[in-house]
Amino acid sequence: MHTRESILVYLKSTMSELFEVSQDDVVLEARLYEDLDIDSIDAVDLIVKLKELTDKKIQPYKFRNVRTVGDVVEAIYELANEQDEKNKESAEN
């Protein structure tokens, strides 16, 4: 189970490792491009890494409207919970 807080912690460490940004700068309101210098190529790498967290195929289009770290957290949170619900369903069946 992923909470928003745990996702943010994960993002802090992943983004600082991948993109040479300080963990302190990875806050919910930070804008990816303007504040963190993360471009579309970086976004592809980030999505690759996020697959490892969610263990799930990530549709890049879900990230199309992502502008801030908060948006990323929200997108992953939704994905992870979708997955959990599906798991629950399959467990019930």
Partner: peptide, 8 residues
């Protein structure tokens, strides 16, 4: 490395 790292 990943492209983002190589590029940096």
């Amino acid at each position: 490395n990943l492209q983002s790292k190589m590029s940096r």
